[in-house]
Design a protein around this nucleic acid. Structure first.
Lengths: 116, 116
DNA sequence: TATATTTACTACGACAGATGAAGTACGACA
DNA sequence: TGTCGTACTTCATCTGTCGTAGTAAATATA
């Protein structure tokens, strides 16, 4: 079920969100649904986590917001990735590869290794 | 240099420490040196992070401490992993594999993908 | 012998990101 | 009429990390 602890993902929520903005602007609800489906239900981002990430990233210049009415007339806040956001995303991808390598030195695969 | 951000490692410091206790008890200073060398200088855990992890994990029952004098007569606090600690470690290894899979859905390798 | 460095911690306060709880508001559907 | 889905916002709390600082003994260097 929801096996993934938040402390693990913590450093990557911004990256995940930016990934979903690479091709076109989007908004909170849509992004949360996409995270759910792309992760095959394995990661469900919390609403508060998502919206506070938007605020933070807009402050940092990684995304820009604008409001637009949906078909039904209801207003939505859309987010668009900036050039800064794109380069931050690229950095995080590189960092991920490094981090992965480092952590795997401390992980044992089968779960063997435990006595003597 | 120190490319790895703490938010990424955050969920894995405990796991890293437990890994280093799997085979034999150890103490703070030794563990920090081992993390440095095993990670090929890519990850240097902060002293405060390390010692607060000890406190937390002892409270959680993952490790036990005892003091022992080193050859020189200086006292050290050693930590020994418990059975609970071993099973927690195993869980975290499994969680890692899942997390890795999930995050990689949102990472683009070459850094391509950026315009339309 | 005097000093610097390494070893081996502890205490404290600050901060950032994640979260739970709660509330708002509109449209669709039954 | 009421519930569900969409689309958020506000607020207060928690946890882990980190900077700063201090202690103290052992070892290396001058």
């Amino acid at each position: 079920m929801g096996e993934i602890s938040s402390d693990v993902i913590r450093g990557y929520n911004d990256t995940i969100i930016l990934f979903l903005l690479l091709d076109s602007p989007s908004y909170g609800y849509e992004i949360s649904k996409k995270i759910k489906s792309i992760s095959e239900e394995k990661y469900l981002i919390k609403e508060t986590t998502l919206y506070s990430a938007f605020t933070r990233m807009e402050k940092n210049g990684y995304i820009e917001s604008y409001t637009q009415n949906s078909e039904s007339g209801k207003k939505r806040t859309y987010y668009r990735i900036t050039d800064q956001g794109r380069s931050y995303y690229r950095e995080k991808c590189e960092e991920w590869n490094l981090t992965k390598e480092v952590i795997e030195h401390f992980i044992t695969e089968g779960g063997e290794n435990g006595n003597s």
